[in-house]
């Protein structure tokens, strides 16, 4: 950024930009700066001009309008960094002048600016798990640009081992309570073999203007054989025999919630399962339920401390006796 003084008898000047442009800036960013010319003798150069040569070769001319502490500056101007990432070079030229009592040498400076693509990040959510082999389902994929570009209309993908298995287009409105997470519902089909699937939501960034970095979010879900059988569960309160409605039941990795009669139907593949019942204040456990056909079982849940009770014990502990 140093001026290059030619051989002459005029005053030498330094030219540049204020504030100094950082070595790296975002693509497509707007920077507000002043161009300046400083004569070593402190001459007032108002009324003279500076030329700014943009990376694409476009030249704009700016008049020097202010003189502060021996330096003459332009008004604030707004410059836009290129949309393409990479090193971009800006030129600044002071033509110099020979007229008048005092002459000033011409000066030119080239400035290299590292233009960075925008950072992005991806979120994948609403992923069902487990999913029966080969069944279609959807996931939500959201993308956020670090500098909050509106990414509506851009493509997202879901990939399995690098192969695209689903595509979506980012919608117009950000997800509720986010600042700029644009998202898409992406339809996919579960793999044909059981196991833990490791997939990823991908934003490639191609076609985004200005340039954006690609990003991805890995996610997992469980793939299971088709549920050929039905476990008909009845959950009761052990002490009273009364049905326990609204309880979370898990048959292995399969989940359901009991109805008012304490019943839940859970479709599962053949296998051996631990049945766990959990709800606030009750717990039940039935280990090793073998399922080869439709089965009906009853689980008697026992009383456990409710969350309110645990919470109260804690509050009491902290706030009353012994905090």
């Amino acid at each position: 950024m140093a001026a290059s003084p030619p051989r002459s008898l005029g005053h030498a000047v330094t030219i540049g930009v204020r504030p100094a442009v950082p070595a790296a800036v975002d693509a497509g960013a707007a920077l507000t700066v002043r161009l300046f010319v400083a004569c070593r003798s402190g001459c007032d150069l108002r009324g003279r001009i500076v030329r700014l040569v943009a990376p694409d070769g476009a030249v704009t001319v700016h008049e020097l309008t202010g003189h502060v502490d021996g330096t003459t500056v332009t008004d604030e101007i707004c410059v836009h960094t290129p949309h393409a990432a990479g090193v971009s070079t800006w030129g600044l030229v002071f033509p110099g002048h020979a007229a008048g009592r005092v002459t000033h040498d011409a000066a030119a400076v080239a400035m290299d600016v590292d233009v960075r693509p925008h950072d992005t990040s991806v979120v994948v959510w609403d992923v069902p798990s487990p999913v029966p082999v080969g069944t279609p389902f959807t996931v939500k994929v959201g993308v956020r640009c670090a500098t909050l570009c509106r990414l509506t209309g851009h493509a997202v993908e879901v990939r399995a081992d690098g192969v695209t298995v689903g595509r979506g287009t980012l919608g117009a409105l950000p997800w509720p309570d986010t600042r700029g997470l644009h998202w898409a519902e992406v339809p996919v089909v579960a793999p044909a073999t059981p196991g833990l699937a490791h997939w990823a939501g991908i934003f490639t960034g191609v076609n985004a203007t200005p340039d954006h970095r690609a990003s991805q979010a890995p996610f997992t879900f469980r793939v299971e054989p088709p549920p050929a059988h039905r476990v008909a569960l009845t959950v009761t309160v052990r002490d009273t025999g009364a049905p326990l409605g609204g309880a979370d039941v898990r048959v292995g990795v399969y989940r359901a919630v009991t109805d008012a009669a304490g019943q839940a139907d859970v479709p599962v593949p053949a296998g051996s399962y631990d049945v766990v019942v959990e709800t606030d204040g009750f717990a039940g456990h039935l280990p090793g339920l073998d399922v080869h056909g439709d089965v009906s079982v009853t689980v008697a849940a026992v009383r456990t401390p409710t969350e309110a009770e645990e919470h109260e014990a804690l509050e009491r502990y902290e706030a009353s006796q012994w905090g």
């Binding site: 798990s129 487990p130 890995p218 996610f219 990795v253």
Partner: peptide, 18 residues
């Protein structure tokens, strides 16, 4: 940032595994 994302992705896989 990659650490936090990886930590959470791994934790989420534990939810799948139980």
């Amino acid at each position: 940032p990659a650490n936090l994302a990886a930590t959470v992705a791994r934790y989420n896989s534990f939810v799948d595994l139980g």
